[in-house]
Structure formats: structure tokens, C-alpha cells
Amino acid sequence: MDLSIRALAVWRRNFLVWRKLALPSILGNLADPMIYLFGLGYGLGGLLPQVGGTSYIAFLAAGTVCASTMNAASFEALYSAFSRLHVQKTWEAIMNAPVSLDDVVAGELLWAASKATLSGAAILLVIALLGLTHGMQALWVLPLIFLTGLAFAALGLCVTAVAPSYDFFMYYFTLFVTPMTLLSGVFFPLDQLPAAMQVAAQALPLTHAVGLARPLLLGQVPTDVFGHIAVLTIITVAAFATAVSLARRRLLK
């Protein structure tokens, strides 16, 4: 790896673009998860007595925060990063300066995770205002969603590094992101799944994000903290290393 502090200049480049459209961007990112939260939370929740020992909307809150963090990180690392890599050739322009490709990918990773964190935090705020959190321990969700953002940004950048066009990303969403949303305990407790699928769900990064976020928001003490964090960290590191080597193959050959 050829990493340096210059990665932050790449982060700042993206931040400067985002700052121009910050408010619409935040509001836009909020709309979709809010519809899920209210629609399912109240609509479906009205039919359910209790889920996991709490109201359905309180159960759903943690899943919504994590899923929208995942979505925000994925969109940024796929569509936005791809337009900079492929359409605008911004990565190539940057690499003519004393910035390595590894720095560029790291800058993109940190940026997508930052944007995802902001997205998740905005939903967290709404949830807190609705009285669906329990005390200050909800703030521990912030570092958790940053780590979640890193994991999904790194996975997304692997796909971006090999993508021939925007169409390619549809496969990633339909084959990976959407099934994961349904199988990671976002909408219903994992123990509702057949035993084999419960085991498989443990391999999904979103499962581990939700596994930590839910007790934190419900005022419970999370279990297996180290295990969840380890999985998300390992995925981040392995996917980032993969993304860098795929990007090198694409741009430095």
C-alpha cells in the first residue's frame, strides 16, 4: 500500500462539491428511510402486538438507521465514485499530482463512509425526536454507523473498480444489497428465519451492524460487541485491499 495524508485532499474535494448541495442532499437521503419507518412502523406495526419485546416501530428504528447507512455508502461508492473515475476522469487528474491511486481510493472510502454517517445520523436524530431512543447510549450508534459506512463503501468500491458502465451496479443492488436488507434482521428478528439461513445471515455485514445498533437504541446492553466489530472491520480491510488492487489493474496497467 502506498498511502499518505494526501488521501484527505481527495476527501476534501468531494466535501467541497457536496457542500454546494448539502441541504437537498440530506433531505433527499432522509425521505426514503422515513417512508419505510413510518409506513411499515405504523402501518404494519399496528397489526403486530410486539416484536422482540418492543413496539414494531421501535424495533424497526435500528434497522432503518443501518440500512440507510448501507444505502448511502453504496450509492456514493458506486454511482458517484464511478462518475469521478470513469466519466469525469477525476481520478486520473488527481494522480498526475503527487497523490497515489491508493490515496484516491482511500479518500473515496472515507468520503463515502462520512456521507453515510451523516445520512444515518440524520435518521438517528429523527428517531430520537420521536422518543424511540433510550438515553445517551444511542450516541454509540454514531461510531458504529461510521464503521458500517466504511464496510459498505469498501465493498462498493470493489464493484466500481471493475464496472464497465452504470448498468453494472443494478446487479450489485438486486443480487447483494436488497437480499441483505431482507435477511439481516432489519425488518424482523433473525430467529424467524430457517436455521440454515440464520447461519448464512451471520456472514452479512448488515447483520452485525443491526446486531449492535438495536440493543443500543432499545436501551439494552449489546452482546458479542467484539465479534460484531471484528466482522465489520475485517470486511472493511479486506474489501479495501481488494478495491485498491482492482483499481490498480484498471488504471495503472
Binding site: R6, A9, R12, R13, L16, I94, A97, P98
Partner: peptide, 12 residues
């Protein structure tokens, strides 16, 4: 101007 500013930052 922003193009120049951002590019200069890549040089530290």
C-alpha cells in the same frame, strides 16, 4: 478558481 484550489491541495 476552485479547480486550482483543489488541485493545489493535492500537492499539500
Amino acid at each position: 478558481a476552485e479547480n486550482l484550489l483543489v488541485y493545489g491541495r493535492y500537492f499539500g
